[in-house]
């Protein structure tokens, strides 16, 4: 997967080393998980798979994931102090290594609990050159790259919700770049994951949350 080449994709990005996949990509995965959780994270149980498990410590993958959960950017030199910062922020973190099955070698599973007490599972992979992909949100098999802003909408599986949400975005002149819809089972809880060309403001997100059938929304900025 090669993105369109800007000269700054070749000379750049500015990042904290040592590895674009194991460090910068891991920060982005942590940042996506933080945004999907939608609230400050109180505890994180992180499982590292494959190369993340075997070379992650030397590459600072553990620090990088925690840095992302804390909201640091991939170029922030405070990444190396992420464990100290987590302590100050009241974020409890634990790590373990495990085989997560047939997934990319650079995969992390993050079981998060927010300050509000919500629990959410986010799993994702670092694909190389800083490109990442969230592949699992709770039980939903998603694909979210963080290259574009996104809106995650948890809703009831009932007629009209998809149309109402897309109409609300259209009214705000927000173009949908991609859209994925999943449901636990017919008539149960469902997830709509919408990548957009324009950022979704909190006001627009609140408008979506107020729609009939919508349970919750999360604005997931590009990272």
């Amino acid at each position: 997967m090669v993105r369109q080449r800007s000269v700054f994709d070749i000379v750049g990005p500015i990042m904290v080393g040592p590895s674009s996949s194991h460090t910068a990509g891991a920060v982005r995965l942590g940042a996506l998980a933080r945004a999907i959780a939608g609230d400050a994270v109180r505890s994180a149980r992180i499982t590292l798979h494959g190369s993340f498990a075997t070379t992650g410590r030397g590459h600072g993958t553990d620090l990088a994931l925690v840095a992302g959960l804390l909201g640091l950017a991939p170029e922030d030199t405070a990444i190396r102090h992420a464990f100290d910062l987590a302590g100050e922020a009241g974020l409890e973190v634990s790590f373990e290594a495990a085989d997560l099955g047939d997934v990319h070698p650079n995969t992390a599973r993050m079981e998060l609990e927010t300050r509000a007490g919500d629990r959410i599972l986010v799993q994702g992979s670092s694909l190389g050159a800083g490109n990442v992909e969230v592949t699992l949100i709770d039980d939903f098999p998603v694909r979210l790259t963080g290259d574009l802003p996104a809106l995650a909408v948890v809703h009831h599986d009932q007629p009209g919700v998809v149309a109402a949400v897309s109409a609300r975005l259209a009214a705000a002149v927000i173009n949908i770049a991609s859209m994925q819809v999943f449901r636990e089972r017919r008539g149960a809880r469902a997830l709509m994951l919408i990548e957009t060309d324009q950022p979704v403001s909190d006001a627009v997100a609140s408008g979506v949350t107020a729609l009939d059938g919508v349970i919750a929304t999360r604005v997931v900025p590009a990272v």
């Binding site: 070749i10 990005p13 500015i14 080393g17 040592p18 674009s20």
Partner: peptide, 21 residues
Amino acid sequence: ETNSRMGRIVAAPTAGASGVV
């Protein structure tokens, strides 16, 4: 060495080869 210490560098073209340019 800065890259290995988790310091800030510019990938050129990669982090591992960032010292040459």
